[in-house]
């Protein structure tokens, strides 16, 4: 499916400037920066509420979001991210059908187990930090918040420390 005629990626510096302008617009209009993990956590609260409503809505963390956890601006932002990504991927002819991105050295199953485990760790850590690479590192970094920059440094420290052990998934 990976077609040869897909468009090249943007110049990363210009993409960065554009992303910075989007973030600035978010500060000036919303009064808050970008965020992705909150939307995911709200989805988690919603799904948890579908299965175990009483338990979820009386729980201390999810319960504080009320009975309509999806009624939140960052949920809409996440939806926007999906639509924007889809729009750009279609324009650049980069939409593929159910591809698992990996090196040839490992099976798709192992790659998906890595993705799932990584996802669980990221989902948990984002709640502990109250944000992810978007909401904490990028947004808080632009505000020059000490905690956000500490978080960013630790993300890379953790990443580089573990990189060696999971390197085979990208080997061809």
């Amino acid at each position: 499916m990976s077609s040869g005629n897909q468009k090249p990626y943007s110049n990363p510096y210009l993409a960065g400037v554009f992303l910075g302008v989007v973030l600035l617009a978010s500060f000036l209009l919303l009064g808050a920066g970008l965020g992705a993990s909150s939307g995911i956590a709200r989805l988690g609260a919603f799904l948890s509420g579908l299965i175990l409503p009483t338990h979820t809505f009386s729980s201390e963390y999810f319960g504080a979001w009320g009975e309509k956890p999806l009624h939140y601006y960052l949920v809409f932002m996440l939806l926007g991210v999906f639509l924007g990504g889809l729009f750009s991927a279609i324009l650049s002819r980069r939409v593929q059908k159910s591809v698992v991105e990996k090196g040839n050295a490992i099976s798709s199953k192992i790659r998906l187990i890595y993705a799932l485990t990584g996802g669980i760790l990221v989902g948990f850590a984002s709640r502990l930090a109250g944000g992810c690479t978007s909401g904490q590192a990028l947004t808080g970094g632009a505000l020059l918040l000490t905690g956000s920059l500490i978080f960013l440094i630790c993300v890379f420290a953790g990443g580089y420390a573990a990189a060696y052990f999971v390197r085979r998934q990208w080997h061809d």
């Binding site: 890595y114 485990t117 990584g118 990221v122 850590a125 502990l128 630790c154 890379f156 990443g159 573990a162």
Partner: peptide, 11 residues
């Protein structure tokens, strides 16, 4: 959180 996130990110 940063350390855990980093491990999850690279995995």
């Amino acid at each position: 959180a940063g350390l855990i996130f980093g491990v999850g990110f690279v995995m």
